[in-house]
Amino acid sequence: MIGPRWLVPLAVAGALVVLLPLAGLVSRVGWSEFGTSVTAPASLEALALSLRTATIATLLVIVLGIPLGFALRAMRGPWRALVRAIVLVPLVLPPVVGGLALLYAFGRRGLLGDALGGSLAFTTAAVVLAQTFVALPFMVVSVESALAQRSGRHEAVAGTLGASRTRILFRVTLPALGPALATGAVLAFARALGEFGATLTFAGSLAGVTRTAPLEIYLARETDPAQAAALSLVLVALAVAVVAIAYRPGSRR
């Protein structure tokens, strides 16, 4: 499909909105010390924590997001629209608000403070929870829209052949959802990796425990801007790689 010619300058402007800040970031990276900046102990510790927590958060997103997508698909009428809107809230919520909300639920004085026997705040678990909170919608949306495109005929056939519902789920439906699940998981991972505001508000910032790469960048920006820029570039590269995998040519998107 080819649009009218006047779309071109607008498209260029749109591309510049994205490209100029990235170019600015690249311009601030001290290339001579890029290696030492990225391999500095603080950087490596933060990156390792980020990868670890984002991986766990992605697993949680898979385990919790798929059933939620099924449940959403099973709903009828106005309920589905309402529940979908609520489940998607973390996508549009300002991250600080998300952090406050988590604090009021899982903090010391939060709804579950007594049940938890204290607070999740300042723990690595809090980081994982914050990341899961913001990344979950990606999986739910992926699963729900993929389910919407299925007729259910294969599942019906499997049913008449005597397969249990669990067997149908694992042998028929989930394999058919494969590409959608992969996309949802990859985007959730990328979102978890970039999580900042909720982590800062809810989990705090301690090297090796809660200071993920985005928080390390936030701290380094004052004291060592070159390190902040170098670490930022690593995160950008990771994000580009992850999204390129999720939307690779040939995937049904």
Binding site: L103, G107, R108, A121, F122, S205, L206, A207, Y218
Partner: peptide, 20 residues
């Protein structure tokens, strides 16, 4: 041995005021 080392005083005060 702080459980969190914040980037500024505001974030420290936020953690205290919220009771965390």
């Amino acid at each position: 041995s702080p459980v969190s080392e914040e980037s500024n005083v505001t974030d420290v005060l936020g953690k205290v005021a919220s009771g965390e």
